[in-house]
């Protein structure tokens, strides 16, 4: 099977664009669900950058890093969604700023 030769800076630029979009989401949205989605976007962008690097050298390491990111994302989502449920129960709100009273 043949795959095209792609300029690596284009892939990385895409990854960067996706990353900053995720970041905008984190900064703007107050709803925790959206916040988490934005985080997923950012992590996914990182994964894309790793895959691109792996593709540049034709080595499997990039994909392995992506898989580790995947494991991290799965773990993070599991815990974070549990926290979301607790937040909803405790504060009856999904506003991330209501958790601000936990500052110390």
């Amino acid at each position: 099977m043949t795959v095209p030769v792609i300029p690596i800076e284009h892939v990385l630029a895409l990854a960067a664009a996706l990353f900053v979009m995720g970041l905008v989401g984190v900064l703007v949205r107050r709803n925790v669900i959206f916040l988490l989605m934005s985080l997923e976007i950012m992590m996914n962008a990182c994964g894309l950058a790793f895959i691109a690097a792996g593709a540049k050298w034709g080595q499997p390491d990039g994909q392995i890093m992506f898989m580790l990111i995947l494991a991290l994302a799965a773990a993070e989502v599991a815990v974070a969604l549990g926290l979301v449920l607790q937040l909803e129960r405790r504060f009856d709100s999904l506003d991330i700023d209501t958790a601000g009273e936990m500052s110390g």
Partner: peptide, 8 residues
Amino acid sequence: TGRLRWYA
């Protein structure tokens, strides 16, 4: 501040 987005 305890504000997550502020940290971000």
